[in-house]
Structures are given as C-alpha cells and as structure tokens.
Design a protein around this nucleic acid. Structure first.
Lengths: 247, 247
DNA sequence: CGACGTGTTGATCTCTCTCAATTAGAGTGG
DNA sequence: CCACTCTAATTGAGAGAGATCAACACGTCG
C-alpha cells in the first residue's frame, strides 16, 4: 500500500470492476481538484464530531466508520467506509448531521478542498449526478442499519452485518480471492454498530460461529454457508450495486 | 388545501421562510418538468417497497413516511416526510435502498418524470447541487434516528422524536402559531419509528405526559417544557437547517 | 514489568416484549 | 336509530432478550 500520490488516471481502484469507468476529461477534472494523498493511522479521527465544514476525502485505502455519540459517551456507528467511499459529504454540504469519522485501520486518503462539491457540479454535471448517487447510496446503507437495529434481534443483526460487509469487501477483491475478506472490526465496533452491549455481542458471535455461519480469524472473515447466514439475516437481494461512481 | 396545479412561481410553500429563494429561471425549469399536482388519501402507498425506478415527487401538502420491512412483517419507519420534502431520490437514483413510502395523511404531490434528476443536474448545476443537499440532509435525519434506536432508551427515543418533529413542523408554520403543531402519527407509527413495541410505546408516552413533557390531543402536539424534553432527549443543536432548497 | 486493549465468561437484573382483553369512538348499512 | 365492524388507545400479567457489573486471560508495547 505504498502510495506517493498516484495520478487519478492510474488509480488502481479505478481498475476494480465495481467502479464505473469515467471519461478521461472527468478524471482529469478530479485530478485537478485533488490534493496529494495522505496517510492516517488506525484510530485517528478523520472528521471531528460536530465540525461544520470539514475537508472532503475519497477513501483510497483502509477502512473507516461514521459515528454519532450522546453526551454520556454512548456511541452509535452509522456505517462503515471502505475503499472508494466518499467522506465528508453530509457535513460539508448540509450542516445537518454532526457525525464523526474515525479510521478503523491505517487509511490513505485523497483530500479535496471544501468547494469541490460545487465545482464538480458546476464543471461536470455527470460528476454532480454521481455525487448525488453516492449520497443516496450511503443513505441506503444507513436505512438498512436502521432496519436492523430497530427490528432485528441480536442474531439477525449480526448475520446481516456480516453478510453485507462480506459482500462489500469481496467486491473489492479479484473474483478468485473472494473466499475470505479482510475484517478489521473489533467486537466493540460490532456492538456499537448494532446497538448491542459488548457482552451480548460476544455471546451472539459465538453462537453464530457454533452454527457454522461465520469464521473470523486474524482479521479475516469467511462465511462457510452464505445461504444459511443470509437466511438468518432475512436478506434477499445482494445490496451491492453492480457499478458505482468513484470520485 | 384545494389545489388545482398552482404554478411553481406562486407556490405557497416557497413563501415559507425556511425555503431558499430561487432565481425565476430555475423555478421556471422546475415548472417545465413538473406534471399536474395529484392527491392521494391517507394510507396510500406512494412508492412500493422494492420498486426499482418509481416516480419522483415533491411533497406539497400532508405528511408521509419512508419505511422498510422484513419478510415476516416487522416494519421500521426510517423517517417522516413533511411538506417540501423530496420523495423517491434513493430508489430512483441508486437502486440500493428498497424502501417504501406511505401517506400518513391525505397528501398532495408534485410529480416529476424519472429523468428529472438528471435534467436538473444538466440544465442547472445549482439545482443539481440542491438535490445533493437534500439527499445529504435526509441522510442526516436517518443518522439521528439510528442513533436513537441504537443507543437511546425508550423515554429518550420518544423525547427525541417529539422534539425533532415539533421543530420540523413548527418551521412550516407562521412564527406566531408555533405553540402547537399538527401531529398525525398514531402510536403504531411512533412504535415503528422507534423500534419499540406498541404496548411499551404507549406506556412510555403516558410516562412522559405525566412528567408534563408533552401533550398530544386531537392530532396536535405541544411541548409545555421544551428545555426539559430536549434535556431528556440529549439534544443540543436544533437540527433544523435555517434554509433548505425546495425542488 | 505494569498498563492497556481485546476477548471471554458468569451472575444478576431490568427494560421491553408478548399475549390477551377491554374500552372508546367513527363509520356503515339496514 | 341500532347492530356491527374497525381502528386506535389502553391496561395487566408474565416472560425473556439483552444489559449491567465484575472478573480473568492473553498479547503487545513503552
């Protein structure tokens, strides 16, 4: 993952099948707005909760998550961010949601100045449309999490999270290597994402493992029986869009 | 609420202070894309859960809500839609979130053809930017709900919902009339929005009422002690943006 | 070596759910 | 005008999923 500001045109992410191909002119526009790539260690706060107009980033490498917390420290993880995800949209554009963003692993970021959103819309309507697409897509992910936390029990929530993260992570890997995917979450992250206590998360995790529905070892996740765990999760479609824009 | 396709330029909603003023040219563009206004009764399904590229609407009058459900019937309300909200963004733009939309009261809608999103982006970057703003804003609302459902207990959830809905509804009223706001939700809606059972929702509602934190009568909500209920909800900012775009 | 993060596990408690009934309008049709 | 139906609100009793609290094990790291 050694990165010395790879040019957007040569971006290895763009070679991954899930990302939509862009015309060279649009890639050039993105390149012209972008700053040099930067690195942040695992655990770093990428966007402070409550900050009003923070920077924008494309997550180039590593995982992160968005979260909100209550004044007494209770924290809810809203969704996880994987390579290719765009960071800072909500805060930058609509002061509304005052969530924070934290690096789950070491991350590499492509930073953009604050007025990038407007420039993209103005100079390339297609990219403006793509930004809207990304916003709508991320809301869909949060919708799913809300359904889980509101109406699924602990086993179902866990199954849902594992299935969805597996699919998202697998989509970034070469087809041949999709038997297991990187899984950097600790049980604390899982608990905070699912609205469960740490103890209960642990017990439920063990219960599902005993049923042969998942296996997490050394930061890798595999799903020995994808159909069975999807059935527990009550998921029909696959949830991962065929192709998505990459800004 | 008699409506025979009021022209966008004369739209009474645009006169409300929370809505951003648009240049006449942009209002004209919106008008040119829009179909004649339509009415739907309370309880009508405006967008079927799982439908792929449904119509787009601006909610002109009445309340609605977005929801998702599990195969056994459990339902989660994702967020409520009030006049001025844009409907159908997520499904239309990113096949991702397969949620439904249901009318909570009788509603009046301004329908737009499916390619409107793209046309707005292409013909008026400012409006494209506004669309993105709306998407980001709505995601912020869902973020808040996820925080509630994941990490707040029943009393806190209820307090949060009442405070936020009160503010959103009040912003649509003349300043002088903001002591009470329309409140068309039944306890079933509240329960489904908060991830609680109906019975517990009812008991918690009564408990908060006994504390003098709210009063719901004949479809109207008032908050006798706004500071106290906001304290229970653990809300600091006001959550309602000063000005928002109206498409 | 002590501090810390992460995982693990037991015991106990309680918030919230489930199930079941009852009451009170509002609407409908004869 | 009355039986009938339906929705929404209400209330009680009992049960259970998940929370809380408290230890302990293990590995890493300064």
């Amino acid at each position: 993952m050694a990165v010395d500001s790879v040019a957007c045109a040569d971006c290895p992410l763009r070679a991954v099948a899930i990302f939509k191909q862009l015309p060279a002119s649009e890639v050039a526009l993105i390149q012209s707005l972008r700053h040099a790539q930067m690195h942040r260690p695992a655990g770093a706060i990428l966007i402070e909760e409550g900050s009003n107009y923070p920077s924008l980033y494309t997550l180039f490498g590593g995982w992160a998550f968005r979260y909100m917390s209550l004044s007494d420290g209770r924290r809810q993880i809203l969704n996880f961010l994987l390579p290719g995800d765009f960071i800072g949209l909500q805060q930058n554009i609509a002061g509304g949601a005052s969530h924070g963003v934290e690096a789950l692993t070491d991350v590499w970021l492509c930073p953009f100045p604050k007025d990038t959103l407007w420039e993209l819309h103005r100079q390339a309507p297609e990219l403006g449309y793509d930004i809207t697409w990304l916003a709508a897509q991320e809301e869909g992910v949060v919708d799913n999490n809300l359904l889980s936390v509101g109406r699924r029990n602990a086993k179902e929530r866990l199954a849902t999270l594992l299935v969805i993260l597996f699919k998202r992570a697998a989509a970034l890997l070469p087809t041949a290597k999709r038997t297991e995917v990187p899984f950097p979450l600790t049980q604390v992250h899982i608990a905070d994402a699912l609205g469960l206590s740490l103890a209960h998360t642990h017990r439920t995790l063990r219960a599902l493992e005993q049923l042969g529905l998942h296996r997490i070892r050394d930061g890798w996740l595999s799903l020995p029986n994808p159909l069975a765990i999807a059935r527990v999760a009550d998921i029909w479609g696959d949830g991962v869009p065929e192709q998505r824009p990459l800004i």
